[in-house]
Design a binder for these strands. Structure first.
Lengths: 217, 217
DNA sequence: CAACAACTTGTCTTTCCGGTCAGCAATAAG
DNA sequence: CTTATTGCTGACCGGAAAGACAAGTTGTTG
């Protein structure tokens, strides 16, 4: 109707566009209601299409759920596989890592919530993925921190639990945002809140590490 | 059958016992499946009673869910309202606080997960409770930390986000235990893991605070 | 023991939801 | 213009699950 220019496969363009719109909407619904609480009808309504049409694009609910999870994980893997940038100081690496993680909480709160629901529920869908993809990366990153320790670049902290703490402290700004909104007396966390959060968490981590140079602020 | 001694209201004793057994079982099911994913039948089966009997004790699912949440929150409120123990050093208070919080994750992982599901979903049931109970306590605790800062007992950290980080870092040992099990290559987190976690998180926080005396380890 | 209360279960109804299917509409290709 | 492919919809089905109801059973009290 509108696009005369895009002669080439007008349908396929719409298809891609609709598919990604569905995924975005499904993400929101899954985040709020969990897998079982989200009906295909509700997701369809949220994307302003009919249930049957939704099923036409994603033939069943399980598949749609997996696609939503996968989209989130692909982003995470892409953004968080840079601990190996050797040559930088531990503090630089850590600051960048925390900043990236915080931005993921800010930019993709719903995907993060879907992930959280999944893990809390025992990771029935993602367990294999965690073993095959996350663990190797985790092991490498732990080794890197250990090498920092042995070189005396940082204090003798517990590497595994350092990562658990960083993940928890950053992800909480997506998953538990409602609680924070209540406690801070705000309707929504805004840019400024995230700035403060990022700098607070970063400083916490850097101080806890006891990195050589502590020139923050 | 067994209890001859407890003449007084043998039934009422069974009732209490059964009620609390139901609550414990419901907690497990809700933790794993979320509210919508948990059927009354599944909860009943997990408590080894019939669905109809379950409904006899808890007339509907919503009520049962609220009772489970309330049980958890009562424990939390009870255990975590001691930041006002004046006279102690910040380090002492903080260490005790983190330890208590970690023990809650260890002792009540399922209640913690139910709570997490609820908050991530936007706290439809608990929002009012958070406003009326948690926020006042939070505000008080923030003021206490601020007084520490103004007295120079701790560094100039961000009090609100300090609490967010402590909560996240401790609660993650309940909520995300599956992820940790995978990453640590264990089937279950054992006592030793929690010991390590507790000491890692505690040290982490104490260092971040920059409390006067840092005589850990 | 008799009568009453507390407890337990089997049956049924209603609602909701995931998914199928047959057919209609719009677009692309010849 | 005709035909085929792709996109979309309404009507429908089977199963699951919440809860109502009535009936039966067990324990309690006079």
């Amino acid at each position: 109707m509108t696009d005369k220019k895009t002669k080439r496969t007008k349908q396929s363009i719409n298809r891609e566009e609709l598919e990604s719109r569905i995924l975005r909407c499904a993400e929101v619904v899954f985040a709020e209601k969990g897998y079982n609480g989200s009906s295909m009808e509700a997701i369809a309504a949220s994307a302003s299409i009919s249930k049957q049409n939704l099923i036409y694009y994603f033939s069943n609910k399980e598949l749609l759920y997996q696609r939503v999870l996968k989209e989130m994980l692909d982003i995470w893997i892409e953004k968080l596989s840079f601990l190996e940038t050797q040559g930088d100081t531990p503090e630089t690496v850590i600051r960048r890592y925390v900043r990236e993680k915080m931005q993921l909480s800010r930019l993709y709160p719903n995907g993060s919530k879907v992930f959280a629901h999944e893990i809390i529920s025992g990771a029935p869908v993602l367990k294999e993925y965690l073993i095959s993809h996350l663990k190797p990366q985790f092991d490498r990153d732990v080794i890197l921190v250990k090498s920092w320790i042995s070189k005396g670049l940082v204090d003798d902290i517990d590497p595994e639990h350092l990562f658990f703490t960083i993940w928890a402290a950053t992800q909480t700004y997506a998953d538990f945002s409602v609680q924070m909104e209540v406690l801070l007396g705000k309707h929504r966390l805004d840019e400024a809140d995230f700035e403060r959060a990022e700098s607070a968490v970063t400083d916490f981590v850097v101080r806890a590490l006891g990195a050589k140079k502590n020139n923050y602020k």
